[in-house]
Amino acid sequence: MKTIDEINDKIGSKRAVVWTVDEVKTKVTELGVAKIAELVDVITTGSFEPMESSGAILNLGHTDPPIKIRSCTLDGVPAYAGFGAVDLYLGATQLVDFAGEIGDGDDRKERGGAHVIADLIAGKSVTLRAIGQGTDCYPRATFDTTITKDTINQFYLYNPRNLYQNFIVGVNGGDRQLYTYLGPLQPRLGNAVYSNTGAISPLLNDPDLDVIGIGTRIWLGGGIGYVAWEGTQHFPLQKRGENRTPIGPGATLALIGDAKQMNPNWVRGCYLKNYGPSLMLGVGVPIPVLNADVVARCAVQDRDIVAPIVDFSIPRRVRPTFGLVSYEQLKSGKIKIEGRTVRVAPLASIYRSRQVAIELKEAIERGEFLLTEAVSSLPRDRTFIPQDRRQMPSLLED
């Protein structure tokens, strides 16, 4: 048995033994769970994937005369201004809105909030245009300027839903190409796309959230972040296998971190054709080796984790599936669906996810990243509540 305080003492004196979760999975057969638990203090996990339920809080500072912002755009992307006078929230998937200024060939159509966030983190200037409400204490009517991360007060990410604990595999059994949040899906089962990284994904290595909780310090976009709350659509009651990993979308996390500290290499705007913008984000989660059970959970392999194959050609909340497939099969590049071989690719970057785990490992080894005790456990009893039309008879009558 170890404690986080003991592990932090070793980190502070640069004596901590840190392995990536890949190293654990590689060596567990040779060394065994008990030996690794004795040797290793921290196991690092990482992910680099589109996390569209993300966004940034910005405080601009007051103008002279003051303004109470009613509406605002940042490089043409609307930001939400329903907070204090100069507080804004910029969502990653918010589309650019140039009010007719964009032509058919203008590539600015493929920009959104994620790109503005990434530009600010990279130190670039962003154009701000604001309209004021006009009150006695905030009389200014308009405000146009350029900002950088150094010319505003607060700039931090608050992401309502990141790090899905498992997800789905998307396919298209219809006759036309579909453009989805997983990217293009070709007709007649022409391809398959998955978005989770399987056995190296952070929450699949702590399936019952025994060590990850509210207040857990994480590596977020190259800087320091924290688990702020359960994520939206948090569904820990998802059906699970014998190894406790969910067979579909399970737990999620809400994350927070100072964007001024982040590295543009790990925060990038992207655009999914005919779907919209999203934020490619690197997230690293350290798992303290408090006992052998922690190592046993981190020893889970891709062959032992499955995800459902979902047909996006049916435009319903609950879509038909073609059964379950293991991540070992997915990572081979080909899967079988009803006897047919279908090529498959990840939306997440498996290579860069591993690099996140390595960067976090190195930060801990340098004594630059200490662990935190969770201040509260994440809930394990959340159900998933849909908004079905059958629950609203008045809509059916319409």
Rank of each mutant, 00 (worst) to 15 (best):
A85D: 13
V96S: 03
G105W: 14
C137Y: 12
Y89S: 11
G84V: 12
P50F: 03
V96M: 07
D87S: 14
T151E: 11
T73M: 06
D75I: 00
K149T: 11
Q133R: 08
N59Q: 14
M51A: 08
T145N: 12
L60F: 11
P66I: 09
F143Q: 05
D97W: 15
D104N: 10
K124Q: 08
G76Q: 00
T145A: 14
T148K: 11
G100W: 15
F83I: 12
G112W: 02
G82I: 12
K124Y: 04
L95G: 08
K124V: 03
A56C: 04
P139T: 03
A92G: 03
G82Q: 12
T93M: 04
A85L: 03
G46Y: 07
A122E: 00
A79G: 00
G105D: 15
A130R: 01
S47W: 00
A56I: 09
K109N: 01
G103D: 12
D144H: 13
K68E: 07
D64R: 15
K68T: 04
D64S: 15
D75R: 06
C137Q: 13
I102R: 12
D64Y: 15
D136V: 02
I69A: 05
I69Q: 08
R129Y: 04
S54N: 06
T44E: 09
G55I: 06
P78H: 10
G123T: 11
R140L: 07
A130C: 09
I117T: 02
T44M: 09
L128D: 01
A85N: 05
G76F: 01
V77C: 03
Q133H: 06
I152V: 15
G103F: 13
T44I: 09
A85Q: 06
G103Q: 12
L88N: 00
I121A: 08
D64T: 14
D104C: 12
I152L: 10
V116A: 04
T142P: 02
K109H: 11
K68P: 05
T145D: 11
Q133S: 07
R108W: 02
R108L: 12
V126S: 01
R140N: 05
Y89F: 15
D136T: 03
D150M: 13
H115T: 02
K124I: 02
R140V: 00
